[in-house]
Design a protein around this nucleic acid. Structure first.
Lengths: 193, 193
DNA sequence: TATTATAACTAATATGATTAGTTTTCACAA
DNA sequence: TTGTGAAAACTAATCATATTAGTTATAATA
């Protein structure tokens, strides 16, 4: 069941990821991608529904890659150490794959179960890292949101070169995370009182 | 000294801001903007250098607006209260002006002094809010970066509807900020020891 | 070996950015 | 009051890209 079979989705997404990492998500075009793949751009419509469809697939692919990058960073550790490991891996991924990371920040299409699924997996991973603090369910969710905000915000501001003061950027995330962790500890104490 | 004088930069940027808030920054086009302004798109080149030039101006305009929105939220208060006021105002602005806020997150053009200037003003404002904690200079910068990361990250994730768990979103930011503040207090104590 | 589905192709259209060159109109100086 | 020049509009044309429609080639499988 194939025609002039040459490409599959995997190859296309890998090339697209390469391009967006090099030139930014905004610069992604079907013409440019097709040229890299040695086909004509209308042929891409056999694989996904136009440029928006490609970006949607790229969001899923990127989120899978992010998940795969985070997982080994948290297994085998717990508590503060796990949060630091997760944070390092997160910022690391966004630095190595700036365009692909950007692609993951797509408004979720509620009709696309695949995207929903991988996004939930990442959130669940972060939730698990917090389990050892034995937080109340609702508080845990607020804290996960805070943690994700720090990580995404830092990655995003770093990419846009928005931090300009002459202080080592690599120290900022561990310090910010440490401060947040200390805050969590205070919360845990309060909760136990 | 004017010709068929009708438009100035201010009017153009206000209309552009309106459009991006309604349709998103990606959807901004010179054709669409020109149509709204009842002119033809090539006429816009008299005011700025193409679509990229418009986005650059919009970044400056948006950052000015953001600054103006933050300022009244911090004057007259200090310490924890000022941080909460700042945070509320920041998230508030991003919610009211999603497209304009998006436009402010532009990779700074180091040759554009106007953009540099307004961006520095916002950073300075946040720095001032932290002054009452009497942190060491370098630590203050790390903490400003952490605070900006939480705020930008939360605003950004909120906009892309990335928080999906059934817990009140409006409570998350004050809680995350509270946790961060508690962490700062711990740091201040350590610093004094 | 014939069929069929897949995925390539070409051709054509539409939209938008951009450039070049032209026209209009207002402010100001003569 | 009138003439000049600059600013900002205009039209026309080009180019890049997305997209659609319809066609062709090929590989798996019946």
């Amino acid at each position: 069941m194939a025609g002039r079979t040459k490409l599959d989705m995997r190859i296309i997404l890998e090339k697209a990821a390469e391009l967006v990492d090099r030139n930014g998500l905004e610069q992604l075009s079907l013409n440019g991608l097709a040229e890299e793949l040695n086909i004509k751009s209308p042929s891409l419509y056999n694989h996904f529904d136009g440029l928006e469809g490609l970006k949607q697939q790229l969001a899923i692919y990127g989120t899978e890659q992010l998940y795969a990058h985070l997982l080994p960073a948290v297994i085998g550790s717990k508590g503060d150490e796990a949060i630091h490991g997760l944070s390092r891996a997160y910022i690391d991924f966004a630095g190595i794959h700036p365009g692909l990371y950007e692609a993951t920040n797509r408004i979720p299409d509620h009709s696309d179960e695949n995207l929903q699924h991988v996004q939930k997996a990442v959130v669940k991973l972060v939730m698990q890292v917090l389990q050892s603090y034995q937080l109340e369910e609702e508080m845990a969710i607020h804290i996960v949101r805070g943690l994700r905000s720090i990580l995404h915000g830092f990655a995003s501001l770093k990419r846009t070169a928005s931090f300009q003061l002459p202080v080592d950027l690599d120290k900022s995330i561990p310090i910010a995370i440490d401060i947040f962790i200390e805050g969590i500890h205070s919360r845990v104490q309060q909760q136990e009182e």
